[in-house]
Simulated assay, not measured.
Amino acid sequence: MKTVQVLQGAFIMEPGKKEAIEKAARRLFGEKGYHDTSLRDISRQAGVSVSSISYYFGNKEELYHTLFPKEEKEKAPDKKEQIENAAIRLFALKGYSDVSIRDIGKEAGVNSAAISYYFGGKKELYAAILERGSALLVDFVEMAADGTRKPMEIMELYSRFFFRLMKEHPYILRIFSWEMIHPTDVFASIGKERFAMVLVVLRAALTEGMEEGIFRHNLKPTEVCISWAGMVAYYYLMSEIKKRFAVKEEISEASYMDQAFDVLMNGIKEK
Protein backbone atom coordinates (compact mmCIF):
# COMPACT_ATOMS: atom_id res chain seq x y z
CA MET A 1 0.00 0.00 0.00
CA LYS A 2 2.81 2.37 0.89
CA THR A 3 4.51 1.66 -2.44
CA VAL A 4 1.30 2.47 -4.31
CA GLN A 5 0.95 5.76 -2.41
CA VAL A 6 4.53 6.70 -3.25
CA LEU A 7 3.97 5.93 -6.93
CA GLN A 8 0.73 7.88 -6.98
CA GLY A 9 2.44 10.78 -5.31
CA ALA A 10 5.19 10.73 -7.91
CA PHE A 11 2.64 11.08 -10.69
CA ILE A 12 0.58 13.75 -8.97
CA MET A 13 3.53 15.89 -8.01
CA GLU A 14 4.52 16.54 -11.62
CA PRO A 15 2.23 19.33 -12.86
CA GLY A 16 1.13 19.39 -16.47
CA LYS A 17 1.82 15.72 -17.19
CA LYS A 18 -1.80 14.82 -17.89
CA GLU A 19 -2.23 17.90 -20.07
CA ALA A 20 0.94 17.02 -22.00
CA ILE A 21 -0.41 13.53 -22.68
CA GLU A 22 -3.75 14.89 -23.88
CA LYS A 23 -2.06 17.45 -26.14
CA ALA A 24 0.28 14.86 -27.67
CA ALA A 25 -2.50 12.31 -28.13
CA ARG A 26 -4.86 14.81 -29.72
CA ARG A 27 -2.17 15.82 -32.19
CA LEU A 28 -1.12 12.26 -33.08
CA PHE A 29 -4.67 10.94 -33.39
CA GLY A 30 -5.41 13.87 -35.69
CA GLU A 31 -2.31 13.37 -37.85
CA LYS A 32 -1.99 9.58 -37.96
CA GLY A 33 -5.42 8.31 -36.97
CA TYR A 34 -6.36 5.92 -34.18
CA HIS A 35 -5.00 2.73 -35.77
CA ASP A 36 -1.51 4.04 -36.53
CA THR A 37 -0.94 5.78 -33.20
CA SER A 38 0.51 3.73 -30.36
CA LEU A 39 0.90 4.49 -26.66
CA ARG A 40 4.63 4.54 -27.26
CA ASP A 41 4.19 7.27 -29.90
CA ILE A 42 2.13 9.33 -27.47
CA SER A 43 4.59 8.85 -24.61
CA ARG A 44 7.49 10.03 -26.78
CA GLN A 45 5.57 13.04 -28.02
CA ALA A 46 4.49 14.00 -24.50
CA GLY A 47 7.86 13.25 -22.90
CA VAL A 48 6.37 10.83 -20.39
CA SER A 49 6.45 7.09 -19.78
CA VAL A 50 3.81 4.67 -21.05
CA SER A 51 2.98 3.86 -17.44
CA SER A 52 2.05 7.52 -16.92
CA ILE A 53 -0.53 7.25 -19.69
CA SER A 54 -1.87 4.05 -18.14
CA TYR A 55 -2.10 5.78 -14.75
CA TYR A 56 -4.17 8.70 -16.04
CA PHE A 57 -6.20 7.06 -18.82
CA GLY A 58 -5.94 3.26 -18.56
CA ASN A 59 -5.28 2.38 -22.21
CA LYS A 60 -5.31 3.88 -25.69
CA GLU A 61 -9.01 3.30 -26.27
CA GLU A 62 -10.00 5.04 -23.04
CA LEU A 63 -7.66 7.94 -23.83
CA TYR A 64 -9.25 8.30 -27.26
CA HIS A 65 -12.74 8.24 -25.75
CA THR A 66 -11.73 10.93 -23.27
CA LEU A 67 -10.52 13.23 -26.03
CA PHE A 68 -13.20 12.46 -28.60
CA PRO A 69 -16.31 11.26 -26.74
CA LYS A 70 -18.71 12.10 -29.59
CA GLU A 71 -16.69 10.09 -32.12
CA GLU A 72 -16.42 7.00 -29.95
CA LYS A 73 -18.85 4.84 -31.89
CA GLU A 74 -17.62 5.97 -35.30
CA LYS A 75 -13.85 5.80 -35.00
CA ALA A 76 -12.73 3.68 -32.08
CA PRO A 77 -12.19 0.04 -33.13
CA ASP A 78 -13.29 -2.92 -31.07
CA LYS A 79 -10.70 -4.68 -28.96
CA LYS A 80 -10.13 -7.51 -31.45
CA GLU A 81 -9.41 -5.05 -34.26
CA GLN A 82 -7.22 -3.05 -31.90
CA ILE A 83 -5.09 -6.13 -31.17
CA GLU A 84 -4.85 -7.10 -34.84
CA ASN A 85 -3.78 -3.63 -35.96
CA ALA A 86 -1.11 -3.43 -33.26
CA ALA A 87 0.19 -6.88 -34.20
CA ILE A 88 0.36 -5.96 -37.90
CA ARG A 89 2.57 -2.97 -37.10
CA LEU A 90 4.91 -4.99 -34.89
CA PHE A 91 5.20 -8.00 -37.20
CA ALA A 92 5.90 -5.63 -40.10
CA LEU A 93 8.65 -3.77 -38.24
CA LYS A 94 10.30 -6.63 -36.34
CA GLY A 95 9.30 -9.89 -38.00
CA TYR A 96 7.37 -12.81 -36.54
CA SER A 97 10.15 -14.27 -34.38
CA ASP A 98 11.02 -11.04 -32.56
CA VAL A 99 7.49 -10.14 -31.47
CA SER A 100 5.99 -11.53 -28.27
CA ILE A 101 2.44 -11.61 -26.97
CA ARG A 102 3.54 -9.15 -24.30
CA ASP A 103 4.82 -6.76 -27.00
CA ILE A 104 1.50 -6.93 -28.81
CA GLY A 105 -0.48 -6.39 -25.62
CA LYS A 106 1.61 -3.35 -24.74
CA GLU A 107 1.25 -1.89 -28.23
CA ALA A 108 -2.50 -2.49 -28.29
CA GLY A 109 -3.07 -1.35 -24.73
CA VAL A 110 -4.59 -4.67 -23.65
CA ASN A 111 -3.49 -7.58 -21.48
CA SER A 112 -2.29 -10.95 -22.76
CA ALA A 113 -5.53 -12.60 -21.69
CA ALA A 114 -7.45 -10.48 -24.20
CA ILE A 115 -5.19 -11.69 -27.03
CA SER A 116 -5.68 -15.30 -25.96
CA TYR A 117 -9.44 -14.78 -25.78
CA TYR A 118 -9.76 -13.38 -29.30
CA PHE A 119 -7.03 -15.29 -31.14
CA GLY A 120 -5.71 -18.14 -28.99
CA GLY A 121 -2.02 -17.26 -29.26
CA LYS A 122 0.65 -15.55 -31.34
CA LYS A 123 0.60 -18.16 -34.10
CA GLU A 124 -3.17 -17.93 -34.53
CA LEU A 125 -3.03 -14.13 -34.51
CA TYR A 126 -0.31 -14.14 -37.16
CA ALA A 127 -2.36 -16.60 -39.22
CA ALA A 128 -5.35 -14.23 -39.09
CA ILE A 129 -3.15 -11.39 -40.34
CA LEU A 130 -1.72 -13.48 -43.17
CA GLU A 131 -5.24 -14.54 -44.11
CA ARG A 132 -6.27 -10.90 -44.23
CA GLY A 133 -3.25 -9.96 -46.33
CA SER A 134 -3.31 -12.89 -48.73
CA ALA A 135 -7.01 -12.26 -49.39
CA LEU A 136 -5.84 -9.13 -51.21
CA LEU A 137 -3.94 -11.37 -53.64
CA VAL A 138 -7.15 -13.23 -54.40
CA ASP A 139 -8.69 -9.91 -55.46
CA PHE A 140 -6.00 -9.54 -58.12
CA VAL A 141 -6.36 -13.13 -59.32
CA GLU A 142 -10.13 -12.78 -59.70
CA MET A 143 -9.80 -9.53 -61.65
CA ALA A 144 -7.03 -10.88 -63.89
CA ALA A 145 -8.74 -14.19 -64.62
CA ASP A 146 -12.15 -12.84 -65.59
CA GLY A 147 -11.48 -13.66 -69.26
CA THR A 148 -11.78 -10.10 -70.57
CA ARG A 149 -8.18 -8.88 -70.30
CA LYS A 150 -5.34 -9.10 -72.80
CA PRO A 151 -1.81 -10.13 -71.70
CA MET A 152 -0.43 -6.59 -71.48
CA GLU A 153 -3.50 -5.47 -69.52
CA ILE A 154 -2.95 -8.26 -66.98
CA MET A 155 0.69 -7.27 -66.50
CA GLU A 156 -0.32 -3.64 -66.02
CA LEU A 157 -3.13 -4.68 -63.68
CA TYR A 158 -0.61 -6.46 -61.46
CA SER A 159 1.67 -3.44 -61.51
CA ARG A 160 -1.13 -1.08 -60.49
CA PHE A 161 -2.48 -3.57 -57.95
CA PHE A 162 0.92 -3.75 -56.28
CA PHE A 163 1.21 0.03 -56.20
CA ARG A 164 -2.20 0.26 -54.51
CA LEU A 165 -1.14 -2.40 -52.02
CA MET A 166 1.92 -0.36 -51.15
CA LYS A 167 -0.15 2.79 -50.62
CA GLU A 168 -3.09 1.30 -48.73
CA HIS A 169 -1.53 -1.64 -46.86
CA PRO A 170 2.18 -0.87 -46.32
CA TYR A 171 2.47 -2.97 -43.17
CA ILE A 172 0.97 -6.03 -44.88
CA LEU A 173 3.49 -5.57 -47.67
CA ARG A 174 6.34 -5.48 -45.16
CA ILE A 175 5.11 -8.71 -43.60
CA PHE A 176 5.15 -10.34 -47.04
CA SER A 177 8.73 -9.07 -47.47
CA TRP A 178 9.73 -10.63 -44.13
CA GLU A 179 8.24 -13.92 -45.29
CA MET A 180 10.30 -13.87 -48.48
CA ILE A 181 13.48 -13.62 -46.38
CA HIS A 182 12.48 -15.57 -43.25
CA PRO A 183 9.56 -17.86 -44.20
CA THR A 184 7.42 -19.26 -41.40
CA ASP A 185 5.36 -22.44 -41.20
CA VAL A 186 2.27 -20.27 -40.81
CA PHE A 187 2.89 -18.59 -44.15
CA ALA A 188 3.50 -21.94 -45.84
CA SER A 189 0.00 -23.07 -44.89
CA ILE A 190 -1.82 -19.85 -45.82
CA GLY A 191 0.00 -17.42 -48.08
CA LYS A 192 2.16 -19.71 -50.20
CA GLU A 193 -0.74 -21.11 -52.23
CA ARG A 194 -2.14 -17.66 -52.97
CA PHE A 195 1.23 -16.31 -54.06
CA ALA A 196 1.46 -19.32 -56.37
CA MET A 197 -1.93 -18.37 -57.86
CA VAL A 198 -0.58 -14.93 -58.72
CA LEU A 199 2.42 -16.44 -60.49
CA VAL A 200 0.16 -18.83 -62.42
CA VAL A 201 -1.88 -15.87 -63.70
CA LEU A 202 1.24 -13.91 -64.68
CA ARG A 203 2.79 -16.94 -66.36
CA ALA A 204 -0.37 -17.56 -68.39
CA ALA A 205 -0.47 -13.91 -69.50
CA LEU A 206 3.22 -14.00 -70.43
CA THR A 207 2.84 -17.25 -72.39
CA GLU A 208 -0.19 -15.94 -74.27
CA GLY A 209 1.64 -12.71 -75.05
CA MET A 210 4.60 -14.67 -76.43
CA GLU A 211 2.30 -16.70 -78.67
CA GLU A 212 0.67 -13.52 -79.97
CA GLY A 213 4.02 -11.86 -80.65
CA ILE A 214 3.53 -9.18 -77.99
CA PHE A 215 6.45 -10.41 -75.89
CA ARG A 216 9.78 -11.86 -77.01
CA HIS A 217 9.45 -15.44 -78.21
CA ASN A 218 12.63 -16.72 -76.53
CA LEU A 219 11.61 -15.99 -72.93
CA LYS A 220 11.25 -18.69 -70.28
CA PRO A 221 7.81 -17.91 -68.80
CA THR A 222 8.28 -19.31 -65.28
CA GLU A 223 11.64 -17.66 -64.64
CA VAL A 224 10.56 -14.39 -66.22
CA CYS A 225 7.28 -14.01 -64.33
CA ILE A 226 9.02 -14.66 -60.99
CA SER A 227 11.79 -12.15 -61.67
CA TRP A 228 9.36 -9.62 -63.16
CA ALA A 229 7.04 -9.83 -60.14
CA GLY A 230 10.07 -9.26 -57.90
CA MET A 231 11.15 -6.23 -59.92
CA VAL A 232 7.67 -4.75 -59.64
CA ALA A 233 7.79 -5.13 -55.85
CA TYR A 234 11.14 -3.44 -55.35
CA TYR A 235 10.56 -0.81 -58.01
CA TYR A 236 7.52 0.48 -56.18
CA LEU A 237 9.09 0.15 -52.75
CA MET A 238 11.82 2.45 -54.03
CA SER A 239 9.21 5.16 -54.60
CA GLU A 240 9.77 6.11 -50.95
CA ILE A 241 13.36 7.09 -51.73
CA LYS A 242 12.37 10.66 -52.54
CA LYS A 243 11.11 11.05 -48.97
CA ARG A 244 14.13 9.45 -47.31
CA PHE A 245 16.74 11.31 -49.35
CA ALA A 246 14.89 14.61 -49.71
CA VAL A 247 14.61 14.52 -53.50
CA LYS A 248 13.39 18.03 -54.30
CA GLU A 249 11.87 17.31 -57.70
CA GLU A 250 8.09 17.04 -57.50
CA ILE A 251 6.99 13.60 -58.68
CA SER A 252 3.31 12.75 -58.91
CA GLU A 253 2.16 9.24 -58.04
CA ALA A 254 0.49 8.83 -61.44
CA SER A 255 3.64 9.86 -63.30
CA TYR A 256 5.84 7.58 -61.22
CA MET A 257 3.53 4.62 -61.76
CA ASP A 258 3.36 5.18 -65.53
CA GLN A 259 7.13 5.51 -65.83
CA ALA A 260 7.70 2.48 -63.62
CA PHE A 261 5.48 0.27 -65.74
CA ASP A 262 7.03 1.57 -68.96
CA VAL A 263 10.56 0.78 -67.75
CA LEU A 264 9.54 -2.61 -66.37
CA MET A 265 8.01 -3.62 -69.69
CA ASN A 266 10.35 -1.91 -72.16
CA GLY A 267 13.60 -1.22 -70.31
CA ILE A 268 15.61 1.95 -70.89
CA LYS A 269 17.59 0.88 -73.94
CA GLU A 270 16.78 2.66 -77.20
CA LYS A 271 15.31 0.16 -79.68
Rank of each mutant, 00 (worst) to 15 (best):
F57W: 02
S51I: 05
E62N: 01
S52T: 14
L63D: 03
Y55T: 03
Y64T: 02
R26F: 08
R26G: 04
R44Q: 15
V48Q: 00
P69H: 06
T66E: 03
T66H: 12
E61C: 03
K23I: 11
L39Y: 02
S54R: 14
L63A: 13
L63V: 06
H65L: 11
E61G: 13
S51R: 14
G33W: 04
L28G: 03
R27K: 14
I21F: 03
P69G: 08
P69Q: 15
T37W: 00
K17F: 02
R26A: 06
R44D: 10
S49W: 02
A20L: 12
L63E: 01
Y55E: 08
I53A: 00
E31M: 10
S49A: 14
K18F: 06
A25W: 06
K60N: 06
G47P: 15
A20K: 15
L39R: 00
N59S: 09
V50N: 05
R40W: 06
G47L: 14
K23M: 06
E62D: 07
P69N: 10
L67R: 02
T66Y: 08
G47Q: 15
A20T: 11
Q45V: 14
E31V: 12
G58F: 01
Y56R: 08
A46I: 08
F68C: 03
H65N: 08
F68R: 01
L67F: 08
V48N: 00
E61R: 10
S38D: 04
Q45A: 15
R40E: 12
H35F: 05
E31N: 12
G58I: 03
K17L: 11
